[in-house]
Amino acid sequence: MSVESVDPEILGPAPGPVYDSAAERRLARRERLRLLVRRPGFIVGFLILLFWLVCAIGGDKITPSDPINDFSVSSQSPSAEHLFGTDQLGRDVLSRVMAGARDVLIAAPIAAGVSVALGSLIGIVMGYYRGLIDEVISRFIEAMLSIPVVLIALLIISVLGASRTIVIGTVAVLFTPIVARTVRAATLAEGQLDYVTAARLRGESGLFVMTREILPNISGTILVEFTVRVGYAVFTISTLSFLGAGIQPPSPDWGLTISDTYRLIQAGQWWPTLFPALAIASLVIATNLVADSIDSVRGA
C-alpha cells in the first residue's frame, strides 16, 4: 500500500458540535473519554500498544536473549528453546521482534508526528484563506503526489545519506502533502460554520481564528490522521529498507528485518519474516482500533 492512503473516515469529516464555552468543551471531552474506555475495540488496541510500549522500554533487558550479539545456530525453526526460531545469522527471532518495538515506536510516531504537524499547518492555512494561496499550494501538492514515492525517498537518501534521522525525515516529507490535503478538507468544512464567521465578524486575526477556533474543532481529525500515519510509517520504512535506503543493520527494526529475510521464504524459512510481519500487523490493527474508537466517540 502506498503512503497516499487516505482513511475513509476523514475524507468527509463529520461536522462536530459547536460549543459555546471552554467549560462545556472540557465537560464534553470528559464524557467522550468515558465512552472511549467502554469500547472493547479501544481496550484491545490500547493493550496491544501497551505491550509494544513495554517491549520498547524494556529493550534487551526483558528479551530472552541478546537480540543483536547472541549468535546461536542459524536458521533453526521454532522450538521450545527459540519460540520464534533463529534468523539467518542465528539470532533469536522472538528477542529481535520484542527489541524491534523500540526502533519502530521511536521512528514511526516521530515521522507521523512531524508530518501531521507540518501537514496540519499547511492544510489549515489553505482551508482558511482559500483563494490564491490555496490554489497555488494545491497545485504543488498535486505535483508532489504525482512523483513516484520511491524516487523522492531515493533522492533524499542519495543526497543526504542513510541514517535513522534521514529515514524519519523522508517519511515525514512523503506524508506531509497527504495530511495537508485531509486537514484542508476538514478546515473547509469548519470554515463555513457559524462560529468561524462570528469570530471573523468580531475582527479576530487569522492566526487567532485558525489556532483558537478551528484547530480545537478539527483536533479529532488530526488525531485520527496521526494514528493512521503511524501504521503507514512502519510500512514505508520497510519499503525503504527494501531499497537499501532505510534504517541500518543490525537494528532489529521490523521493516528492516522483513526486507532482509523475505528471500528466505522460498527456502522454506518463513519464521524470520512472518513474526515481524505479524508484529507490524498487530501494531497497525491496534492503532486503527484506537483511531476508529476515538473517531466514533468524537462523532457521537
Partner: peptide, 10 residues
C-alpha cells in the same frame, strides 16, 4: 563499528 549499508549505486 557502525554499519552503513547502501544501494549499489550509492
Amino acid at each position: 563499528l557502525e554499519l552503513q549499508i547502501e544501494g549499489l549505486d550509492t
